[in-house]
């Protein structure tokens, strides 16, 4: 299988702080990969480079579209309901499937309540649901299980696997068990 998602000889600095220097990464399409490494090493910069939210100083980024993402922060419209947060990315046409997705993630009852009333774990699941609600070929997730208990992690991982079957996944995590939940190959960030 060809490597279609690629960071090649990337250098990226913020002011005088060089975050990535001549960094390369390739992810085979259709595979799940987990990027692991200590905090502050540049994993989130890789995430942002792949999403096109940050441009490299030098080097080349090539990726596949459409992409979807779970950010490190939940990044939800707090005053809107969980369903409205999904409508933001899908429109109203997918309401039925969105409610089903929320139900699978254990948010069936709370779908129409404002997100600001949710616990941290519930908000995280809304962020995951939003990423899964759209059509995508490449799913990027920066610590998607943050704040979830073990049981909810397993349920969430199953839903992610169901919705992303055959698609490419990049997981960013500190935890090898989370990579195992998604059957992801681990790449140690160096």
């Amino acid at each position: 299988m060809s490597d279609q998602i690629l960071l090649k000889n990337i250098t990226k600095s913020f002011g005088s702080n060089i975050v990535l220097k001549d960094y390369s990464l390739s992810i085979p399409t259709g595979k799940s990969v987990c990027l692991m490494g200590p905090s502050g090493i540049g994993k989130t910069t890789v995430f942002r480079l792949l999403l096109g939210l940050t441009l490299p100083d030098t080097g080349k980024v090539s990726t596949i579209t459409p992409m979807s993402a779970v950010f490190q922060e939940d990044r939800l419209a707090e005053s809107a309901s969980a369903l409205s947060n999904l409508r933001l990315v899908t429109g109203r046409a997918k309401d039925e499937s969105n409610l089903h997705l929320l139900h699978l993630l254990g948010l069936g009852e709370e779908g129409k309540k404002p997100v600001k009333e949710f616990s941290g774990g519930m908000k995280r699941r809304v962020a995951v649901a939003r990423a899964l609600a759209v059509d995508f070929e490449f799913l990027l997730m920066d610590e998607p299980f943050k704040g979830l208990d073990e049981e909810t992690k397993k349920i969430t991982a199953e839903v992610i696997k169901t919705y992303s079957a055959g698609k490419t996944i990049l997981l960013i995590s500190h935890d090898a068990d989370e990579a195992a939940l998604l059957d992801a190959d681990i790449i140690h960030f160096s």
Binding site: L51, G52, L53, P66, M67, S68, A69, F71, E73, R75, L76, A77, L88, V89, G91, R130, V134
Partner: peptide, 12 residues
């Protein structure tokens, strides 16, 4: 941050 989400998800 939410505007970045809109950009990534190609929100109309």
């Amino acid at each position: 941050a939410l505007l970045e989400v809109a950009a990534v998800f190609r929100v109309t």
